[in-house]
Design a protein around this nucleic acid. Structure first.
Lengths: 218, 218
DNA sequence: TAATTTTGTTAGAACACTCTAACTTATTAG
DNA sequence: CTAATAAGTTAGAGTGTTCTAACAAAATTA
């Protein structure tokens, strides 16, 4: 069983891993706001636990086990964020801090219940994929339509808040997964977007709607 | 801000306080499963923080502030238990362990949201009163009807799980707050209770129902 | 009341996690 | 390629929480 502190190191290593999975002590130190010598000694500890490959003066890499354990913490974080937004009515900007704490709760049943109540969600309210119970990540990260810019062409990937009303709304506008959407303009005042797709040449989408549509950039 | 560990000491002191509010180091030590010298030194620390009155070889007492802070942790614990049972569908026997962890979450908004979603409950699923946001405890502790014995006469005090269906059920049996109920017999097999009250001389109440009725002993 | 037991304290050490200061290795810039 | 800079490590110390061993005070019992 890893401590709360170890979990935070694992999570940071995971999210700083780029293509080759290598992380510098220095970057990790800055990300965690923990001084380098402290990081070094923790890396030796995690190496002893077979969670990190550590060689002096070489970049850090998570082991397969380390990667899995990190992903499981991230799973708990993202499930929690989704739960806070969907089931408790928090705004997506409020949930990160709370999830940072709840992700360390030791109770498999607590998180499996969340998962069930949320109907096994595949991504969190920010569009990031939720690792499965084995720590495997299938989906890729999406971005919210509201975060895209004028002129972008994007593809509908997923939807947050699948309430009946919202789905009916999407239906009425013929918005569906896979749909290619072009952003014609963004109203600076209220962030309403004017978009076009298929035979809808000028459809207005409120900020609230754009916050709930997850897209891929072309 | 108190640490998780300090919060656990405060909570233990609170719940071990009897009428005069005095607690022995030894009892505290046993309750927390922490050795006496450790408890002594923590008491000195809490005394320095004005949370405990400490005199060598004398019983411990919480200060007014200590009592308040303890009550606020207990508030978070009981709110959490209620949330887990009412909103997440856990059994009341599953929730204690999870609540022991969640009670230490630092996020006022998280707990005020729970409180709101639960419609400001006054007691937890075990019948214990939930302290208010100022740490004041108004209600007294109730016990579940299911925990009472054959021959007991009890008074209806409160109801857990106020779903429409359950309230309709209670209505149909003319069960209401303040009602005096006599337990005639308890079925050993499934814990069904046969009770009498007012002009109902032999009413059968399933274990599920008895778990949700909180009563005072006469 | 005196002896014994129980309760509580002091002293000293250990573990997890953090730091600063000083040193070493690797990288970058002339 | 050497000098300067950046990145990483080692050593030693501090804080928070825990322990065991030894001692002191209080309560109990004979």
């Amino acid at each position: 069983m890893n401590s709360l502190v170890e979990e935070n190191y694992l999570k940071a290593l995971f999210s700083l891993s780029n293509g080759d999975g290598e992380v510098n002590v220095n970057d990790l130190s800055k990300h965690l706001e923990i001084k380098m010598p402290t990081v070094t000694s923790m890396m030796k500890k995690l190496a002893a636990k077979k969670l990190v490959h550590y060689k002096s003066y070489k970049p850090l890499r998570l082991t397969a086990r380390g990667r899995k354990e990190a992903a499981l913490v991230i799973r708990k974080h993202r499930l929690t964020e989704m739960f806070l937004v969907e089931k408790m009515g928090f705004g997506w900007e409020q949930v990160h801090e709370i999830a940072e704490q709840i992700e360390h709760i030791k109770s498999p049943i607590f998180f499996s219940k969340m998962d069930e109540l949320l109907d096994y969600p595949k991504f969190d309210p920010h569009g990031s994929p939720i690792p499965d119970i084995n720590g495997k990540i299938t989906g890729k990260a999406y971005r919210k339509l509201s975060e895209c810019n004028e002129g972008d062409t994007v593809k509908m990937a997923a939807v947050i808040n699948t309430s009946d009303e919202f789905l009916k709304f999407l239906n009425s506008r013929e918005i569906h997964l896979g749909l290619k959407i072009k952003i014609n303009s963004v109203e600076p005042f209220d962030h309403t977007m004017v978009v076009s797709y298929e035979n809808h040449l000028s459809e207005s989408l409120s900020h609230m709607v754009c916050e709930r549509l997850l897209v891929e950039k072309e």
